[in-house]
Design a binder for these strands. Sequence first.
DNA 1: ATTGAAAATAGTAATAATTACTATTTTGAA
DNA 2: TTCAAAATAGTAATTATTACTATTTTCAAT
Lengths: 126, 126
Amino acid sequence: MNYSRQREQVLEYVKSVKTHPTAETVYNKVREKNSNISLGTVYRNLDKLSKEGKLLRIKMANGKDRFDGYTSKHYHAICTRCDRVFDVSLDYFNNVDKVVAKKLNCNVLSHDIIFNIICPDCERGF
Amino acid sequence: MNYSRQREQVLEYVKSVKTHPTAETVYNKVREKNSNISLGTVYRNLDKLSKEGKLLRIKMANGKDRFDGYTSKHYHAICTRCDRVFDVSLDYFNNVDKVVAKKLNCNVLSHDIIFNIICPDCERGF
DNA sequence: ATTGAAAATAGTAATAATTACTATTTTGAA
DNA sequence: TTCAAAATAGTAATTATTACTATTTTCAAT
């Protein structure tokens, strides 16, 4: 994989925020620094970076994928009103995969938990 | 809400299987009995039925929504190779919502867990 | 039974996120 | 310096789902 400034900018932006941006947000933000970058390039690089393990791709049930610069295993919460995504600092349930593996008699690779919440901002009016 | 034969057929099919069909599968299967039904009608009725609580809509991260005739709270496993979806008979973690509510200081409505697995069929060749 | 407005339908068009394609430019090892 | 592999910008295609529209069906009140 060759160097590219665009990829560096994409990674830098996602690593710099805790907001779990969508591809489009990454595109808009990186464009503020590099007005030439194209949306396709952002998508391609987000994909490459997450396959490399440098980013986490969170495939959200409600549509848009989100990206996370914090790559250790952890859970997420999504506000059902504003769609903001938050990290959940809960100990990872390592053993539950084994329990399910026995029950289903199959190989369990991992699990994801999404908490559906109403975030503090939305709770108090918006 | 008025009666409709199409809605009855959609509900009947989803209730009759354990496969967590997609809207398109429901469409194809119901069409075997009623060759007139349209895809839009299937989507509309799946939506109505799940909003009524007669079906469960499982918003899958990988794209297509799945529908489940078994409406109690439970978890799901998806095969990362063939995309088949299975029910997971694990006790529902009722207390974890409260823990997260305290951590995030917000209202937690529910949570979903998806186990990423390799199903027995795929494990043994396909 | 008849009527008529609300609800539902079939069929098609529109939307939205993402991926694929293509001609051009950039990268980096030889 | 060269040149093939990799990456890019910009656009087109894809895919699941929702929206729209003219027609048909349902059902409560006559």
